[in-house]
Design a protein around this nucleic acid. Sequence first.
DNA 1: GCAGAAGTACACCGATCGTTCTACTTTGGT
DNA 2: ACCAAAGTAGAACGATCGGTGTACTTCTGC
Lengths: 211, 211
Amino acid sequence: MSDDRGEATPGRRGGRGARERILRAADRLFYAEGINATGMERLTDVAQVSKRTFYQHFPSKNALVEEYLHRLDTIAAPPRERALARDDLLPRDRLLALFALFAADPAGPATGEARLRGCPFHNAAVETAGTVPAVERAVVRHKEAFTRLLTETAQAAGATDPAALGRQLAVLFEGATALATSLNDPAPLADARAAAAVLIDTARARPERAG
Amino acid sequence: MSDDRGEATPGRRGGRGARERILRAADRLFYAEGINATGMERLTDVAQVSKRTFYQHFPSKNALVEEYLHRLDTIAAPPRERALARDDLLPRDRLLALFALFAADPAGPATGEARLRGCPFHNAAVETAGTVPAVERAVVRHKEAFTRLLTETAQAAGATDPAALGRQLAVLFEGATALATSLNDPAPLADARAAAAVLIDTARARPERAG
DNA sequence: GCAGAAGTACACCGATCGTTCTACTTTGGT
DNA sequence: ACCAAAGTAGAACGATCGGTGTACTTCTGC
């Protein structure tokens, strides 16, 4: 396997990359197979790390879960955030580009590919069911940050009430990924995109209206 | 749900009707605490049933999970379906009523109440991560049935493309419950309702546009 | 009033959970 | 060359997982 030396992590001496491999394994397994379903045996196996080494880097599995979420939020800002930062697109198209990310495949239900797993933060919230405060906090922090990003872009797009549009688009995106997970089919992303276009254009044309 | 805490009568359990009690306990625990997090010990305890009795009614825990989902879909059609069937409301208002179900509390983040847990089918899909085919099928069946219901109501509301509007509203509702779960705050329901109103009205007005 | 279904208690099974431990090897700076 | 840091393998801990086995006690219909 590739052995890119893990550069020294802040505050601790960099070793031979065990910590990095652990986090990479967590990234993959916690997301694809679930947090509860991933045992320490499996995790250390994939990370190519002994259990002893694991517990020299993390006090517990829970601590790794927290670090896993923290990393997702701060270091590895994935395609979503980048789509909203594309300066080659108009703000409106940036918002729409978000929904095209996973909807590329028009072939229907996952054609032999990996299972769709939705948002790792939401999944963590579902799996822990509110029993792990640190996880709960991380999830809320992430969702609020994402909504803020949407709101900023909504403002750039000239929405009358950017905060309202931002929240609505956040709901829409959450629903698209959640439903895609339940159905194991990216089709809802396309529906969400169409709905987003309507919401954005309406929000620019006239002020928000109550139901 | 006030005194299902056993041990009130030491040595005596619940008596006849074990299967019903088991299913009721599953309803509560699988939903509120998660499927994986609910062990057989806990389950039989709450159901006031001995383990032996449980396994005379169900071949395995997985079988109970399947029955739990099957029941949710067929027998106990909860508020959602009923909201869409209210004949005291116009079709448009029926659709909107859906989003008012859990949004009643304007007090913000769960005020000491039970944690918001979203859709039990979606949660089951997340928890099992595609490893239990019967669960996967049940989830898909439910989501498709719900979308069908929305489509029918969308048609009654006079949408030009009822299927498209139905799917969009399904995404919106899924997002509202999912985000409410992640944030443990029903606020997204209100945002979804506002968005739904826009989508419905646009879907009715746009293509005809005559007057 | 009695057969038998339905229920009870609870010890126990092997497997796996997260975690700790002992014992040993590799690595890199001085 | 030496030593501490960082790594390795893997046995084993107690707890809990889903699931069984044995032996006993109701309740109910006939």
